[in-house]
Amino acid sequence: MSLFAKAAEDRLAELWQAAAMAPDFTWLRRPESGAVMLRGLAGGQGAPFNLGEMTVTRASVRLAGGQVGHGYVAGRSKRKAEIAALCDALMQDPAAAPAVEAAILGPLAREAEAAAAKRAAKAAATKVEFFTMQRGED
């Protein structure tokens, strides 16, 4: 669910379309957008405080086979929430799960990892390597 939530909308839609899955489903909750209040901790570790909200869109579906799936995704894309809910439901169907895993989850996980590694590599290149210069004459 986290991978679906964190994926870019366009990429998720692209993978979903390429996977050519069109499961029969009924809406338990049609996609709706709202907000979630984010919190921080004073000093990064103390008392919680309200930091500000974030847009979130959610949807819930039931497949013809009875599997229920929920999508909670950042942003306001109803399409993304729908795909996330469908993928979540399909992951609970032993017959469909391997295909979702291979066609959607796998690529998303690899791409997320690559993006994080790229950021970390750029950050590492800006790490300061201190060296101490000797002062005066001895």
Binding site: V36, R39, T55
Partner: peptide, 9 residues
């Protein structure tokens, strides 16, 4: 926007 809830810190 309706508030769905609060995230963990």
């Amino acid at each position: 926007l309706p508030r769905f809830g609060e995230a963990r810190p």
